[in-house]
């Protein structure tokens, strides 16, 4: 997948040009790649599923606010961590942001070394999430590569049915079930029955529907 090659960068979103520019310069001085956006809408318009890194997001902006962008990102399943920066000591807003899963909530003026640390931290978290997500996507792709019959066998194995019972349910020979089952294990990279069941569970969490 090309996504694997995407580099982590900081997406700076602030309507104040000077703040944007100065954050950019600091990131540059720390050799952190970044891109700046003057509004949440501008960022959202170019959002790409493969983008990696984190957001440094001003909470109050004309047009779409930081909180609103955070919501929309969650809706489209983005895993980019959000570091909010705000000039307002607005407690309810901070609570709301954290409740929505913000990684950090920094007050302006931001303590710089802390800032770089927080970005590094966000990158790490995003890395973890990305890999998880990547693995899951791989799994989903693997599941998708199963034939119709293999899927049926996979679902029934995950339900805990024995080969014989599966054969009876599907009206095929026990031997044929065994062959399909071996194929499923191979395609999904599972070595044990336990692994196979876990993959099925994870897939269900990801919205995968049992047949």
């Amino acid at each position: 997948m090309t996504a694997a090659a995407a580099i982590q960068q900081v997406y700076v979103i602030d309507d104040d040009e000077a703040v944007r520019d100065s954050i950019g310069m600091l990131l540059e001085s720390a050799d952190l790649p970044f891109r700046s956006f003057a509004s949440a809408d501008e960022f959202f318009a170019q959002l790409d599923h493969n983008q990696r890194g984190c957001l440094v997001l001003d909470i109050r902006m004309p047009g779409m606010t930081g909180l609103q962008l955070q919501q929309r990102l969650a809706e489209v399943g983005s895993t980019l961590p959000v570091i909010f920066i705000t000039g307002h000591g607005d407690v309810p807003m901070a609570v709301e942001a954290m409740r929505q899963g913000a990684l950090d909530f920094l007050r302006k003026p931001v303590n710089e070394s802390n800032f770089i640390e927080r970005i590094q931290h966000a990158f790490d978290i995003e890395s973890g999430k990305w890999h998880q997500k990547h693995d899951r996507e791989q799994q989903l792709a693997q599941i998708a590569s199963l034939t119709e019959r293999e899927r049926e066998v996979f679902d029934l194995v995950a339900e805990g049915l024995a080969n014989k019972a599966i054969a009876g349910r599907l009206g095929i020979s026990e031997r044929t079930v065994e062959v399909h089952r071996a194929q499923v294990m191979k395609k999904l990279g599972a070595r044990t029955l336990a692994q196979l069941v876990r993959i099925h569970l994870q897939a269900e969490i990801s919205g995968f529907e049992s047949k």
């Binding site: 104040d16 000077a18 703040v19 520019d21 100065s22 954050i23 310069m25 600091l26 540059e28 001085s29 720390a30 109050r60 920066i85 000039g87 307002h88 302006k108 003026p109 931001v110 303590n111 710089e112 070394s113 800032f115």
Partner: peptide, 23 residues
Amino acid sequence: AGIAHEINQPLTAISMYAQSSLR
């Protein structure tokens, strides 16, 4: 509150530029 924000913006930029300068 708004005025604090208005002053915080340049202060934020100043501290960022200062740190960049050091780096």
